[in-house]
Amino acid sequence: MVSGTAKGGPGGPDEADDGSDRYRPGYELVAEQLLGYIAEQDLMPGDRLPTEQGLAQILGATRNVTREAVKVLAAIGRLSVRKGAGIFVAASPGALTDDQLAHFQPTSMEHVLMLLDYRRLIESETARRAATLATPIEVRAMRENAELSLTAGKAVDAVEFARADALFHDSVSVAAHNVFLRSSVANIRRLMSQSDVLLFHGDVPGSLEVAGNQHLAITAAIAAGEVETAAELMAAHIGTTQQQFERRIRDRVFNLTTKPAADATPSQQQPSQETSAS
């Protein structure tokens, strides 16, 4: 059994040693453990994993729960299931080849906080460069996306906000005129979306309206060529995201220790939606 995994039994890993884990869906726990197994074995994109039955034995889980875990990890792009061939570690759509990034643990607070710290550095720099290099057309697109995010935020429309949010951050990175910065921003958001799916199942994390207003403030600073202000506002924006994430973690742990959660399956979730107020 993988170190740190929940003990097996008739119900699989639902009977975890941690009291808060006791009410987490079994597939969610096994998905977390499976990512840990991939990291421990130093498996890289393209490497083949054992069969579902083999993984169930390794993780101390039932085959049904293991199958659901494989499904959710395939849905967020961490595994590739090829009919007749087996289960493989998926290649990242962002071509992340660094060993540490390939083994990102989306349910690890330590990993996510490091990712947010990196995001603050990268996106504040994109905002700084955009304030110097953005063309009028790029500023207009940025403003339109910021306004769309605010409208969606006021309506508490998480799906529409997620779309506008992604467009806004991409438009800022485009205006920085650096393909490597743009790629970094996109990769960070892909990794953050994995945490949203596995930990929060797409729930709205905080005030989307606040995030929309922050988008507009960042846009105004970039349009005015206020380099340092743009960078500071972006850093503060990412800081708000981190505060929301930490609060959601605390709330989630509190809720799990006070009442059972529904044992939803991945088919009931929308793993493709990215709804962080970021």
Rank of each mutant, 00 (worst) to 15 (best):
S92G: 05
G60V: 11
V112M: 14
A61R: 04
A91P: 07
T62N: 10
A69N: 06
T97E: 15
H103N: 04
R82H: 03
V81H: 03
A75D: 07
Q57C: 08
R78P: 00
D117N: 11
L116F: 07
V72I: 12
T62M: 09
Q105P: 01
A85T: 07
V70Q: 00
I87S: 00
H111L: 04
Q57N: 10
E68V: 02
D99T: 08
G86Q: 12
T97K: 14
L59P: 07
I76Q: 05
F104E: 02
I76H: 07
D99S: 05
H103A: 07
N64G: 13
I76M: 12
H111E: 08
R82W: 00
A74Y: 02
S80R: 09
M114P: 03
K71F: 04
G94L: 14
H103W: 13
M114T: 09
L113N: 14
L79H: 01
A61K: 05
H103I: 12
A69P: 03
Q105E: 12
K83H: 09
T97H: 13
S92W: 05
H103P: 00
A90L: 05
V81M: 05
M109K: 10
V89E: 01
A91M: 08
I58L: 11
N64P: 11
K71H: 09
K71R: 15
A90I: 04
L101G: 00
V65M: 12
L79C: 02
K71P: 01
L101N: 02
M114N: 09
R67I: 15
I76Y: 15
M109G: 04
Q100N: 04
A74W: 02
P93Q: 04
T62C: 09
S92M: 11
T66D: 03
L115F: 15
L101F: 06
E110F: 13
I58K: 11
L115D: 01
K71W: 03
E68W: 06
L115Q: 04
L73C: 04
G84R: 06
L101S: 03
M114K: 15
A102W: 00
V112Q: 13
K83F: 09
D98K: 09
A74R: 06
Q100T: 09
L101K: 05
G60M: 15
L79M: 04
